[in-house]
Each structure stands twice: as C-alpha cells, then as structure tokens.
Simulated assay, not measured.
Amino acid sequence: MCRFLLRIWHIMLGGACAVLFLGQITPADALASINPDVMVFLLCMFIVGEACCRSGYLDTLTDTLFRYAHTSGELVALVLFGFGALAALLMNDTLAIIGTPLVLGLAGRSRIPAKLMLLALAFAITTGSVTSPIGNPQNLLVAVNSGMHAPFVTFATWLLLPTIASLAAAWLVLYLFFRKEWTALLKFEPAPVTTPDPDLIRIVQCSLVILIGLTLANIAASFIAGAIVMPLPLIGIAAAFPVLVFSAKRVEVVRSVDWTTLIFFAAMFVLMAAVWETGFFQSLAGIAGLSSVPAILATSVITSQFISNVPFVALFQPLILQAGGGTARLMALVAGSTIAGNLTILGAASNVIIIQQAETRGETITFIEFFRVGVVVTVIQVAIYAIFLGLL
C-alpha cells in the first residue's frame, strides 16, 4: 500500500494550479508574478548552504559556536540571540537555509527535541530581522519607499530594545512548553564521522566571506549615502560563484539543492497574485485602521497570514504615508508584518524554508505544533512593540 505524504509545497502548488485552471489569473500574469530577484537569491543561498553541509564545515561551525552551552536552556538562548543578531545582518531566508541543518545537528548530538531547536531558530531569525532594513524584504521595502534617511540608524533606534525584549520573551515561552528538557545537562556526542573536504571548505569560506563582506558594504553605504547599493540577487550570485566555478562537486551541490522549496515560492507568487486581483485585502487594509500603533500591529500580524507580508507592506505603506505617515507607524508596520511569521508557518517565508529543509532530514513541525507555541510568542511580542513604540 502506497502512502502519500502531503507536503506544504504540494498544497501551495495545488492552489496555484487551481487558480490557473479556474481562470483567476492568466498564464502570462502568473509568470510575471514570480519575483526573479527572490528566486535567484534563494537558489544561490541554497547552493552555498548545500556546499556548507557537504564540505563538513557546518560541523566545525557548530562546535565553535555552541560549545559553551551546558544546558538546553543555555543552548536555546545562544540560538535565539545568536541567530537573532545575525538576522539583522543577513537576510532571514539565508539563515533559515544555513541554520536548519546546523540546529538539527545540535539536537541530534545533544539529544534534545528537534522541534525545540527548529522553533528556536524560526523565532530567532524572524524576530531578529525586525531591527534592520536588510533583515527581510518587507523591511527593505519600507526603508526604500519611505525615503528614510540613514535607515539602519532609524530601525535600531526604534526597534532594537523591543526586539531584545521579544527574543527574551520567546525564550520564556519555549521554557514553558519544554520545561522538562530545560535544565538537563548537555552531553554532546562527537560530530558524525565524515571526511572533510578541505578544498570545498576553503571555497565555502570564500563564499561566506563574500556574503558577509557585501552585506557589510551595504550597511556602510546606508550610513554614508542613505541607500543600499548592492541588490540582493547580485550578493547571492557573488556568494555562489566560487562554488559553481571552482568546486569539483558543483554538479552534486546543484543536484542536491532543495528544489521543492523553490517550487513552493514560485507557486506562492502565483497564488498571491490571484488573491490580490480579488481586491478583498485592499478593502480590508483600507478599513482596518491607520490611526494607532496597536491597530497597525494587529492588522499587520493578521493580514500577513493570508497574503505574503511583502505585498501586504506594499499595499499598506502608501496608505500610512497618505494618512500622515510618522516613523512610529512605519516601524509598527515593519514589526507587525515581520513578527507575523511567529504566529504560523505560512506567516514567513523563512518558516517554510525551515520546515522544508527539516523534512528532507526526517524531522518536521506540524501547523498546529507551531501555532500553539507561536500564538503565545506573537501576542506577547505585539504587546512589547506596542508599548515601546507608544513610548517613543
């Protein structure tokens, strides 16, 4: 008897095929709706991430970064605040690609629940990305389209403290749900016996240097010129270039890329474009309320569950600017549309990447498992951002 397991990308692809079949969107419009910048960037990051795994460099990174953790609680704190800090520098989708095999390796070697580590990673990179204009695509949209001067300074001034508090809140919530495992002493088993590939390790290190270097150059350009000079697809291409050109295992790496996640994103763009054409969410956003920070936060969190947070921000930001703008309202839009990813799996693209990557390695989190923890995290974080943004 053949058992067919329905994956999240099957559902999204089915939805896209349905709207095409029913004529809700034309094939030409469907093709035009697929964002090539996102697809190219993700493909390149998948290539770098896969090379990290194949080279054996990921095991070295794991031992270096997390050897100081003695209990499960300490390990979760390092994941939350470590990946949260990195999410301010690197796009959260990038960290989802590289971080998932890393935390799953940690879970296996320390004998703590894989679900705990996956949730910690998801909450870390979603929450941490709030503080930077390059943490995620919707932040970049707000920073560029609002004409914000020195966006890195503005984001940090308004959002750094509540984000640190929100990461601490995520730690406390995970403690409540996993308290039995929290104080157990960690006994790290040796890394799996693999044969490191010194040549591929050097190439991966070169790719990571390029990735981080170009990102830091973007940050510097933001401080100096008030603009981001290097588009994300070019950063991705530059980072993947050493693997594709100089590695003898380039074919194996490309073949092992998580193509199903790329299919998910292409299908998502088509389905969201069809939903967008109905005009329903435009009307909802128009009547949801623009007058207060709590209303913007709540509207952002809820609506981002039904349409991607990027098109939601593209819709809602002009409405806020037309209503008089204000930095607090724009920052509420940034925070709400981002921490929406902590509520459900579909609230953030990085969550989907984490689940897809985990499923290829024999682990997963169901929608309900994610939601029952995420709803508590999200409610607390909305309150934190509402209080901080209301005081500034």
Rank of each mutant, 00 (worst) to 15 (best):
P318A: 06
L315F: 13
Q381K: 12
N309P: 04
I307C: 05
F312I: 05
V376D: 01
G325C: 09
L333A: 10
T338Y: 04
A358W: 00
I302C: 08
I307T: 04
V293G: 01
T378Y: 02
Q305T: 08
L297S: 10
G362R: 03
V376K: 00
V377Y: 03
V379E: 03
P294D: 11
V373Y: 03
G326Q: 08
G362A: 08
L319I: 10
L333E: 12
F316T: 13
I365H: 01
V376P: 12
G336S: 07
A332F: 05
S350G: 08
Q317M: 15
G362M: 07
V301L: 14
T378A: 03
V379I: 14
S291C: 02
T344K: 03
T303Y: 14
A314Y: 07
I354N: 12
M331L: 13
V373C: 07
V382T: 14
A340T: 05
S337L: 09
V377R: 00
V375E: 04
T366D: 13
Q356L: 05
A349Y: 04
Q317D: 09
N342F: 02
I384Q: 04
P311H: 07
V301C: 13
N342E: 10
L315Y: 13
V376F: 00
I345K: 01
A383T: 11
V313R: 00
I354F: 09
S300G: 01
A328S: 15
G336M: 06
T360S: 13
G326C: 07
Q357I: 07
T378P: 01
Q305K: 05
T327Y: 03
F370T: 08
G325L: 04
T299A: 15
V373R: 05
G341I: 05
T338P: 07
A295L: 13
F371Q: 03
I355P: 03
L333N: 11
T344A: 14
A348M: 11
I354E: 14
V352C: 01
T327G: 04
F306H: 11
N342D: 14
S292N: 07
I354Y: 12
L319G: 06
A323E: 12
L333K: 06
L333H: 10
I345Q: 09
I320G: 02
L321K: 06
E359W: 03
L290E: 11
L333V: 09
I368L: 10
T364F: 03
A298I: 15
L333Q: 09
I365S: 00
Q305G: 07
I384K: 06
Q322L: 05
I302N: 04
L330R: 02
A348G: 11
I368C: 01
Q356R: 12
I380H: 01
T364S: 15
S337T: 15
V313T: 15
S304P: 04
R329Q: 14
G362V: 06
L297D: 13
L297R: 09
P311S: 11
Q356D: 11
V310T: 14
V377M: 09
G347I: 10
I296H: 11
R329A: 14
A323M: 03
G374F: 00
A349Q: 13
F371T: 15
I320Q: 03
G326S: 08
L343M: 14
S308D: 15
A298W: 13
E369A: 12
I302T: 12
Q357Y: 10
L333W: 12
R329M: 13
G374T: 02
V334D: 07
Q381A: 06
L297Y: 01
